[in-house]
Write a protein that binds this DNA or RNA. Structure first.
Lengths: 114, 114
DNA sequence: CGCATATATAACTATATAGTTATATAGCGT
DNA sequence: ACGCTATATAACTATATAGTTATATATGCG
């Protein structure tokens, strides 16, 4: 019973699953289509899809024998929202580079670079 | 030897570590200060910090006996960049809600809602 | 030097994850 | 009903992770 954020980040912490999402960004796909590019077994792909589904990152329908997967973007938006909190740190005047430059200007005597 | 994206997402998939980052967003902090709000042991915090450091999300200095931690925003920016690829899916006309509305308008006979 | 404080590492346990192969389920076509 | 295709589940193995307690390391101080 992981919180949604943890589940989503955890699901994204795997290159195979990120590749699956990248594929789904081009449109719905069946499990077979998603499995094709990978050298791992079909059950392994099914497991990855289950992880993505439980993380709310994909959803699945039913079309004949196939279970088409589609991207569920809302959860990705949540992650982007979480990251927003930190945007000022990489954009504004709060990042390390900035601190470094400020230190240089001040000629901070405690700074090992001085 | 995880790729940087996987390491970062994996590091963020833990509420304790995200709380640590949130604390660091308010400024540098020592290990002890970071550990204080949590009920887990100090070594557990040290491990979390090691994970965050190896993921490139924090860096550490040395001040007397303390090892102050600071936020390293560049990696968070990378994640935001990765997410950007999918922004159109939650903003534009590519998300599920949109598809839902389109289906309603068409009165799609294959749609179980019709 | 010897002690106190801050932090890291070691050794261990419990649980989770990613993969495997073998098998089961579900829906379509005949 | 039968067989084919698509996908899921079971059972298992190997490795990773989060936590624990005990101990080691490093720095500052008297």
């Amino acid at each position: 019973m992981d919180d949604p954020l943890s589940a989503a980040f955890s699901a994204l912490a795997d290159p195979t699953r990120r590749a699956i999402l990248a594929r789904l960004a081009k449109g719905e796909a069946s499990v077979g289509e998603l499995a094709a590019p990978f050298s791992i077994s079909q059950p392994a792909i099914s497991k990855h899809l289950k992880v993505l589904e439980q993380a709310g990152l994909i959803s699945r329908g039913r079309m004949a024998q196939s279970r088409p997967c589609r991207l569920e973007a809302a959860r990705l938006r949540d992650l982007a929202g979480w990251l927003e909190t930190y945007r000022r740190f990489w954009e504004g005047s709060f990042d390390r580079l900035d601190a470094y430059l400020q230190d240089l200007q001040k000629g901070n005597p405690d700074d090992p670079r001085n």
